[in-house]
Simulated assay, not measured.
Amino acid sequence: MTHVVTAACEGCKYTDCVTVCPCECFHEGERMLFIDPELCIDCEACVPECPVDAIYPDHALPAELEHFVKVNAEMSLVTPVILVKKKPLADSEGDGPTNHASAE
């Protein structure tokens, strides 16, 4: 099993989660983060650190977010690993997270 970053991360990209990940499985895209399903050990350390509740276990994803399993797997192959906390995107102080059907 793995955890999945979903639409709530898009446009805000809080990085609190990356500092608690014991296996360095987070990757940074331009507008959101992704989890490498091959490296995630399903420890759930990242879940309470996400201020927008964007991270789910893959088996507990709401139906409308299930496509993010594939998005995370694909994007973790082409985006760099992120290991340190960074300033969130400017959008994060807007109207809150969006539920876009696509990522990046």
Score class of each variant (00 low, 15 high):
Asp58Arg: 09
Pro80Cys: 01
Phe34Leu: 03
Pro80Gly: 08
Lys13Phe: 01
Pro37Tyr: 03
Cys43Lys: 04
Ser92His: 13
Ala63Thr: 12
Glu64Asn: 06
Phe26Val: 07
Pro97Gln: 05
Pro80His: 03
Glu38Lys: 03
Ser76Ala: 12
Val47Asp: 00
Pro48Lys: 13
Glu44Thr: 15
Val71Asn: 01
Pro48Tyr: 12
Ala63Glu: 15
Cys25Pro: 00
Pro22Val: 00
Pro97Ile: 03
Glu104Arg: 02
Val20Gln: 04
Leu39His: 02
His59Asn: 09
Asp36Leu: 04
Ser102Met: 15
Lys70Asn: 10
Ser76Glu: 05
Val84Arg: 10
Pro62Tyr: 15
Ala73Asp: 14
Pro80Ala: 13
Pro37His: 02
Tyr14Glu: 05
Gly96Lys: 05
Ile82Pro: 05
Pro97Gly: 12
His59Pro: 04
Cys50Asp: 02
Gly11Ala: 03
Pro48Arg: 08
Val18Phe: 09
Glu38His: 12
Thr98Tyr: 09
Leu33Phe: 07
Pro62Asn: 08
Ile82Gln: 00
Met1His: 10
Asn72Thr: 01
Arg31Asp: 14
Leu83Tyr: 07
Asp16Ser: 11
Cys17Gly: 07
Val20Phe: 01
Thr6Gly: 05
Cys17Gln: 08
His3Gln: 09
Leu89His: 04
Cys9Arg: 10
Gly29Pro: 04
Glu44Tyr: 08
Cys50Val: 02
Val71Tyr: 11
Thr98Trp: 11
Ser102Gly: 14
Val71Pro: 05
Pro57Trp: 07
Tyr56Thr: 09
Ala90Met: 10
Cys25Trp: 06
His100Asp: 14
His27Trp: 02
Ala101Phe: 14
Ile41Val: 15
Ala90Gly: 06
Ala90Val: 07
Phe68Ala: 12
Ser92Pro: 01
Ala54Gln: 11
Val4Ile: 15
Ala8Val: 10
Lys13Ala: 15
Glu24Gly: 14
Thr15Gln: 03
Cys50Arg: 01
Asp58Thr: 06
Pro80Asp: 08
Ile35Phe: 08
His3Thr: 14
Glu24His: 13
Val78Trp: 11
Pro80Trp: 08
Leu83Trp: 00
Leu83Gln: 06
Lys70Pro: 03
Met1Asn: 13
Asp36Val: 08
Ile41Thr: 06
Leu77Met: 13
Val78Leu: 11
Pro48Ile: 00
Cys46Phe: 04
Pro88Asn: 06
Asp16Phe: 12
Val69Glu: 15
Cys40Asp: 10
Thr79Ser: 13
Cys12Phe: 07
Val71Met: 10
Glu74Pro: 09
His27Met: 08
Asp58Asn: 12
Glu38Arg: 13
Pro57Val: 11
Pro22Arg: 12
Ala45Lys: 03
Glu64Val: 07
His100Arg: 15
Ser76Gly: 05
Leu61Thr: 05
Ile35Leu: 03
Cys50Lys: 00
Thr98Gly: 14
Val84Gly: 06
Arg31Pro: 06
Glu44Val: 10
Ser102Val: 15
Lys87Ala: 15
Glu64Phe: 15
Leu77Thr: 10
Cys9Leu: 04
Glu24Pro: 09
Leu89Met: 05
Ser102Pro: 06
Ile82Val: 13
Val5His: 03
Tyr14Ile: 00
Thr2Cys: 09
Val71Asp: 02
Glu93Asp: 10
Ala8Thr: 01
Ser92Glu: 00
Thr2Leu: 09
Gly11Gln: 03
Asp36Lys: 10
Phe68Gly: 04
Cys23Pro: 01
His100Val: 13
Asp95Val: 06
His27Gln: 07
Pro51Gly: 02
